[in-house]
Design a protein around this nucleic acid. Structure first.
Ligand SMILES: [Mn+2]
Ligand SMILES: [Mn+2]
Ligand SMILES: [Mn+2]
Ligand SMILES: [Mn+2]
Lengths: 231, 231
DNA sequence: AAAAAAATTTAGAGTAAGCTAATAATTTTT
DNA sequence: AAAAATTATTAGCTTACTCTAAATTTTTTT
């Protein structure tokens, strides 16, 4: 009856869930195959690095992550499943708010960031079925399946597209509400058609035509966050 | 620049909100005009009496309650408004889950008990408008208005009704999911017609007829929680 | 009015999650 | 290969909320 070894893995708290979700996001958008850094986590979670170190020890203890002190962390399968559940909760809710309660795509993230931790499985599944089992959220992010599978994103950034080739907007990655409102105001919603007419040098703005209608100058950094598919 | 006096009142935490909500419920269902007791709060919140005392000091400090040590507590106006917001959030959500997501009345309380603390005003108002601005939840409890007004319940308990007088069921107070399912199974939903055919002595069961269809024996303690209105 | 019972508060401690400052390890630059 | 810069960890505190056990006050019973 060893008190430590026998202990059940606890239900992850809100804090743990946010850590695991961010670790997942950093892991999958990471250029290299290295572990996720303490510093990056601290930034994304808006807590001190010391707090992150402290929490990583607990997450490792409960086997949600593999932790090599000084060399970063990666998710275990248990940790990945927690992250997937958060992404599913978050994205199903966002989709529901837009489709059923008149939210616009810039309003949903704030609501979902908190509620993702408190929605029951039952509620998420009922929303998802009511919506017709959607596969993507209002920003084009894939919704993990209930058993934790997620479609790999196979899209190109708008910055990688050659001039004059019409493409369709499929995913907007991580933009602020203000930026999302701006994008909507120039017609850049999911599935909009985009043709790059010109690209200024030195990572300068792109001249784009949207849905064969209007021309706009698009900042290079913004273009980096727009992911598209050949028509 | 006194650190204490200048301090803003903090946004109430989930724990504070639950305390204030329960204080409200005990205050308004209390027989006498005395303060709400520490012991009752401890029972309803499932925490120790010492924890309650500790929390009451903080709530009094922030002026959400009036607290007379040893003689119980009552809500201030600020405290009452917090309680009303929780009841509104809780009851609007319950109504939404039943009307829009196929929940039955015995499933909604569990979901609402947690989510009431995390729903934004925007979301609650959108659900409420989408539902057509309902005034009562699926159990018949009144939904406070957005500015904290609540309709006083003016109903009689089924135990106070004379034999053979048809009445309509308007409110089921505080029943467990199991009891709610049982009530539904014998046709006792909101607005069902009830006629008491007989009442056994010594607070024994009531013989009732439901919607002119079926007869049932109803436990006296259950009847105490059913509130009705003359037809 | 005293004794007994019940309710309440106080004392002391624990856990979760955060912080700053100090220290240590790693990585980058020279 | 040193020095400098960066990143990470440790040490020591803090706050919010909870607990049990002991002490105190109020209420009820005798
Ligand atoms: Mn989001
Ligand atoms: Mn979150
Ligand atoms: Mn309820
Ligand atoms: Mn609650």
């Amino acid at each position: 009856m060893n008190t430590k070894a026998n202990q059940k893995r606890q239900t992850p708290s809100r804090a743990w869930e946010d850590y695991l979700k961010i670790i997942y996001k950093l892991e999958s958008s990471e250029n290299l195959g290295k572990g996720v850094q303490t510093k990056e986590l601290a930034q994304r979670l808006a807590v001190s690095q010391a707090s992150v170190t402290n929490m990583l020890k607990k997450l490792a203890e409960e086997q949600y992550i593999d932790y090599q002190p000084y060399y970063g962390v990666s998710l275990t399968e248990a940790g990945r499943l927690v992250a997937m559940k958060m992404l599913r909760n978050h994205r199903v809710l966002e989709t529901y708010l837009v489709a059923r309660l008149g939210y616009s795509w810039d309003e949903v993230d704030e609501e979902a960031e908190t509620l993702e931790h408190f929605l029951s499985d039952k509620l998420v599944e009922r929303m998802w079925h009511d919506l017709g089992q959607p596969t993507h959220d209002p920003h084009g992010s894939p919704i993990p399946s209930i058993d934790g599978q997620i479609e790999p994103v196979q899209l190109q950034s708008l910055t990688e597209i050659t001039l004059q080739t019409p493409v369709r907007l499929k995913w907007i990655k991580n933009r602020s509400p203000e930026e999302l409102r701006y994008l909507a105001s120039i017609g850049l919603h999911i599935n909009a058609q985009i043709v790059i007419k010109n690209q200024a040098p030195f990572q300068g703005p792109l001249l784009i035509e949207v849905d064969d209608q209007h021309f706009h100058a698009l900042d290079y950094r913004m273009a980096l966050a727009l992911f598209v598919e050949a028509e």
